[in-house]
Design a protein around this nucleic acid. Sequence first.
DNA 1: AATCGACCCTGCTCGC
DNA 2: TGCGAGCAGGGTCGAT
Length: 302
Amino acid sequence: MPELPEVEVVRRGLAAHVVGRRISQVEVLHPRVVRRHDRGSADFVGALTGLRLTGAARRGKFLWLGTDREGVALAAHLGMSGQFRVGPPQDPPGASRPGVHERAATSRPRHARARFGLPDEDLWFIDQRTFGWAAVRPLVLDPHDVAVPDLVLSVAPDPTEAHFDLGHVAEQMRRRRTEIKRLLLDQCLVSGIGNIYADEALWHAGVHPQRRADLLATRSVEDVLEAAVAVMAASLAAGGTSFDDLYVHVNGSSGYYARDLNVYGREGLPCPRCSADIVRQRFTNRSSHFCPACQPAPGATD
DNA sequence: AATCGACCCTGCTCGC
DNA sequence: TGCGAGCAGGGTCGAT
């Protein structure tokens, strides 16, 4: 669900609402949420209780909160439907929006998977589809000497990072004999891009999602990456993309970028550039959206 | 090593 | 009204 801009909105929310606070209580409400924590729910609770949160960081779609215990972070990924929400302890988030986030009889938000008790409010991890997770992980130095959770070592820098090298990423992509869209979604090459922004970037650059990267000009691959950077920056400026209440800011508000999408979710509607009908095509259990006129399919010659 | 499909979940919408 | 199929913004794993 959330891609880089949406996760960055969440990171900023966490920085504003929970950094500086001490965790007084931790409750794991669904065992699956801690599956990337090495030693189970009880250890997760024990490892976090009493720690003070010192910072909120992000690489691509991976989030982490630094702690006052040297070299230890609370790492998290939102998966397809994860949310962090803050609210008063006795009045969980969603309580004031009946019908949107129904409260269970136990007075916690629907799909709540973990609760972190802070001095003046609760931080909830809410996740309908349970693809998201939270884990206490050691911080290690990456090749650029940035401290990241060990699980994030395999994740490439995202375009908002100082050492992100677009030309280098383009060169790596051009060495791969696979579809450009698949590479855009490969978090080991460049992180933060998901299905929405991949489709939007390819449309902006006029490149068909099934074109093989090794058969594209370096310039075309760079065009696609530059478009991805621009689209995500524009989305972030608009507060992120949101179609529904599955993606929201830590305070429950949502972004407005959906109105600016050109192809994603617009099957059968006219291409904003040439008016041809937008096509949706199955792509590894997902969909690709593109304009068949602006983004010509790879032909027999390429 | 690189590539690709299957799989992990819940809930909603659509067509029959 | 009921029910199955298909779909959803994610990553990971194993087989080739």
